[in-house]
Design a protein around this nucleic acid. Structure first.
Lengths: 403, 403
DNA sequence: ACGGTATTGTTTCGGCCGAGAACAAAATCC
DNA sequence: GGATTTTGTTCTCGGCCGAAACAATACCGT
């Protein structure tokens, strides 16, 4: 039960009931399609007359379409309803430190096109180029209409103004991406942090059969980000800085983190932490401590390849990374007890090796396992990008804001 | 924006709009009383006619009463509306390991009576005694009617069945308190974990001028519990086991915790941790390591008294406890970025000493302070008990569940 | 003193919406 | 071919909000 926020509430008007039931039916169609009007009435508890009226609206707006007629042992044939996934397209933009991916998806979250461009350090220039690329992409993939643009960034987004407030990896700070992009494209823009986007992707794309209301996404790259969905909705904190569990110190007197602390989860279990650890490992071997050349040559992808080839040093490094990953994950599970925890990032490619170690640590660490399923994100499917689509999708499929 | 849970949703009926607006108006009366109907219309954005209709209902049900008429420079005198705090009473029950407190409160969360009884280890006997005491208390304080009973326990409550599933301190396990108590008293019973109750207490009792939507309560006793309110609502996790941050390991190779881990926050910063530390401290002094007699004599309250008297050993112990408290609080602030974090428990009595240490640790630890205010709970006002009242109150004042 | 004006609270009407019942349509079974 | 069953539509009723008109008070300036 939520407390009503008296500085930001929404009264009910005569159209509120319709809005609520409309969204419920749209979700039921999405989940159970193909489904008849009578089926919807059974599933929802609404009267068939009400369902028919709402269905008529949804069909008129092309959200759903009538499909084949079904077949029953008795009685009149039902006409099935489907979600009209081609009603409109959604643009997803995943801004990374070096390159930015732009994609077109349909309402069923399937991608129709995908291309990438350099990010660059000049923010104004980037926004201009991005706007042009998006317009070109829309022209190349005519979809009838476009619902909006979802954007994710590796940084923090201020929750009310939707401004980017903190993105050390991009070299920008205090930037308004939303307004110029909306002006350039004429579409509504939704901005979100990358880890949060991953959490949304898992929430909305049907990998989990039953509905999960509590889900945590851990993104592992050169940073560690955490996106939390609790009570079925994203937790942003009042200022948008929630989820910085990557900067919780897990051990005393650990390595120095760039946040100023020592022993942060991020400085122990991120990709760059693994690379640093590996470099030191082999440098020590070769007696060239601090050698810049050795440290610069290995990327995290290389390390994973070395593990596949059976390099003992690389395996040792990865196992240690997995151990530290487990420590942080154990913290999240004991504290938040989600139904599902997904690990996103290149490590998920080596989950056959990493997974058991993480699970072992978590089992030893968290008293009440809380039944959390720990899953690697599908490495083939772009989690962040799917999240940007979900970001736009939830405006239509999410629960309406009332009271 | 919340995702609609298709296995547990609520369609809108013709009465839904009224329910929503009614709750909003009731909250506005609570916040801004005394307030006229026209004032409510301005605050809510509803039409005066709608406000009048709803006000008529609320007055008929004695939720609000008409009070004095106001005075304006021009125009008709407004008739002020007040919350009728004596409409009904609420019973609050705070079950502790040794004693249980029962109280009667009015709708404005003011206590009219308060008494305590022994808890005991026989659960069935306890429930029977509790039921009798509540009925006696209601007879002694006739309130017209009673809205319900709020109960908090130092343990975990399964979220759907409202059964007590885990309460090591009480010696009970897997117990249904709700059903027998409802049968005995004829009132609806709401059961909740103690830390969650404290969080609710802070959320609903007007210590915070603006509405806070993100709030964390840390209860420090012989255990450490965390109650989280994010996006304006309690986070229980799907099984009701969220908030066990007390069992996150903050240092490597710390003392053994009874949960099986080492170095848990709870084993470092709880009252019993401080007592253990102090006992070891003075035992070492006196050369009687492990002496049971020395360890048994000191309670945490005694330790606080010794601090007040300026005992160096006691001060040292408390400072260390404060340091570890700060470590855990820093974790919560970096991860959850709440607006407010309240510390509940006997330590809050020594906040003048503890507070600065906690603040210092948090400032050094959390990169983005997120503007979280860290407050001690008022030691005089029973936080857990206030929470049990809030538990019942929110059924009427909380946002309705739709979609 | 008296009309003008501002404000509050009520009344009335129109429109939206869901509930429910009746009805038409369509298919199967006996 | 009629009984039965299921689907989908139509129609009426009651609940509710929005808007506007109206009644009830006050104060102010002349």
């Amino acid at each position: 039960m939520r407390k009503i926020d008296l500085s930001h509430f929404q009264v009910a008007t005569s159209g509120t009931a319709r809005d609520i039931n409309r969204r419920i039916l749209l979700n039921l169609v999405r989940r159970h399609q193909p489904i008849s009007r009578a089926g919807l009435a059974r599933q929802s508890g609404l009267q068939r007359s009400t369902v028919s009226a709402i269905a008529e609206q949804l069909i008129a707006e092309h959200w759903v379409v009538e499909g084949a007629t079904g077949h029953l042992p008795r009685g009149r044939k039902p006409t099935f309803l489907h979600l009209n996934s081609d009603r409109a397209g959604i643009i997803g933009v995943d801004i990374g430190p070096v390159s930015t991916v732009i994609a077109v998806a349909s309402l069923d979250m399937e991608f129709a096109a995908q291309e990438s461009m350099a990010t660059g350090s000049d923010a104004a220039d980037f926004i201009a180029r991005l706007g042009r690329r998006i317009k070109d992409l829309m022209r190349a993939h005519p979809k009838g209409s476009y619902e909006g643009i979802g954007v994710c960034v590796p940084g923090r987004v201020e929750v009310s103004s939707q401004r980017l407030t903190f993105a050390p990896n991009l070299g920008w700070k205090e930037l308004d991406l939303k307004t110029p992009l909306e002006r350039a494209t004429g579409l509504p823009v939704e901005l979100e942090n990358a880890a949060n986007a991953c959490a949304l992707a898992e929430l909305w794309s049907g990998r989990h059969p039953e509905d999960v209301g509590n889900l945590v996404a851990v993104t592992v790259s050169d940073e560690i980000g955490v996106g939390m969905i609790l009570n079925g909705q994203l937790v942003r904190g009042s200022t948008g800085v929630a989820g910085e569990f990557g900067h919780v110190a897990l051990i005393n007197d650990g390595p120095q983190c760039r946040c100023g602390n020592r022993g942060c989860w991020e400085v122990l279990a991120s990709n760059s932490a693994a690379v640093r650890c590996y470099s030191q490992n082999i440098s020590v071997r070769k007696g060239e401590v601090g050698s810049k050349s050795a440290m610069a040559t290995v990327a995290f992808g290389d390390l994973l390849r070395l593990v596949e080839q059976g390099s003992p040093k690389a395996c040792e490094t990865l196992d240690q990374m997995a151990h530290y990953l487990g420590l942080g994950i154990a913290m999240l599970i004991t504290g938040l007890a989600p139904d599902v925890l997904v690990v996103v990032g290149e490590v998920s490619r080596a989950w056959k090796r990493v997974g058991p170690i993480v699970l072992d640590v978590v089992n030893r660490r968290s008293r009440t396992r809380a039944g959390t399923r720990i899953l690697p994100s599908d490495p083939e499917s772009p989690a962040r990008l799917r999240g940007t689509i979900a970001l736009v999708l939830q405006k239509h499929l999410g629960a309406p804001f009332v009271a």
